[in-house]
Computed example of a mutant assay.
Amino acid sequence: MIPTAYPDRATVARLSARMLLDIGAVHFNTETPFTHASGKQAPTYLDCRKIISYPRVRATLMDFLCCTVMEAAGLEAFDNIAGGETAGIPFAAFVAERMGLPMSYVRKKPKGYGRTAQIEGEMREGDRVLLVEDLTTDGGSKLKFVDAIRAAGASCAHTAVVFYYGAIPGTEERLAAHGLTLHYLTTWADVIAEARRGGDVDAATLAEVERFLADPEGWRAARGLA
């Protein structure tokens, strides 16, 4: 069922942040930073995969995501919903179900056997595709997925995520230069504000995380981290 009523943008950001905190998807560790897929270390980690195990949170966030995209792009803007391997696949399925559209997914690289396909499911030439993922940091993985979609003869001008780091300068500009508009529900700034409001995390930790987000490379360099 396509959602048609939703809160204002600020309320969506706050409620989304609250839900991520409530299900334990938000992790801070300023003493022993996390190592991310990029190899870089950070005192922050967001586990969006936990969303799939919480039905009420999952349903609400997916309603928010559909409404956010449709408000910005239009109700008839897409022909296909694509998820990026692997984290984006369940979210693409939830969004496709709500929007009443076909769903496909994009591999990180072509399968090395059979049809050697990179796109699974049916994506037709000329389809207008919405790429759905769990989160974005600097947008790099989005560009690779979008290139694969376009190589298949479809178009992709929009990507939607639950969580956007919002701390790496030039991310949205980099995506825009690739012809891609980013839609998201909440950011680290929203999560920190909600954690401070709700008393979920001590003030000293939040202050240190804010220092990191203001200058990630400087924060790492001062601690001799990668």
Rank of each mutant, 00 (worst) to 15 (best):
K142R: 04
V209G: 14
Q41L: 02
P216E: 12
R124S: 05
L20E: 13
V95H: 00
I81L: 06
F94Q: 05
P3T: 13
I149P: 10
L65C: 02
I52H: 08
A160S: 03
A92H: 09
Y164P: 09
A17Q: 00
R150F: 12
T86Q: 07
K109A: 03
K144Q: 04
L65Y: 09
D8T: 06
A222T: 10
T136F: 10
F64T: 11
R18I: 12
A73F: 14
A25K: 10
C67Y: 02
T136W: 07
L206Y: 02
L21K: 14
D215E: 10
D215T: 05
A17S: 12
V146E: 08
E122N: 04
I81G: 04
A96M: 03
M1Q: 09
I119F: 03
M103R: 13
A25Y: 15
T181E: 14
R223M: 08
A13F: 06
A87P: 05
T68K: 04
E76T: 15
A5W: 11
A17M: 01
A59P: 15
L135R: 05
L101I: 01
L175D: 12
D22M: 01
R197G: 01
D147S: 13
G24A: 02
L175Y: 11
S53K: 11
G83L: 08
C67L: 10
P3D: 04
M103Q: 15
K50I: 12
L180M: 14
Q41Y: 10
A59D: 15
F78G: 08
H158W: 04
D127K: 08
F145Y: 09
D47W: 11
V132Y: 01
Y165F: 09
I149C: 06
I23V: 10
E210M: 04
A117F: 07
L20D: 01
K111P: 14
V161M: 05
L143N: 01
A77N: 05
M1W: 15
G114K: 13
E125I: 15
A207I: 07
V106W: 02
T4F: 05
D138F: 02
G224T: 13
A73E: 08
T35K: 06
T44W: 10
Q118M: 00
K111Y: 06
H36L: 13
L131T: 06
A73P: 15
V69F: 07
P7F: 00
A167M: 02
R14A: 11
Y165D: 02
R196S: 09
V106Y: 14
K144I: 15
Y113H: 07
A87K: 07
T11E: 14
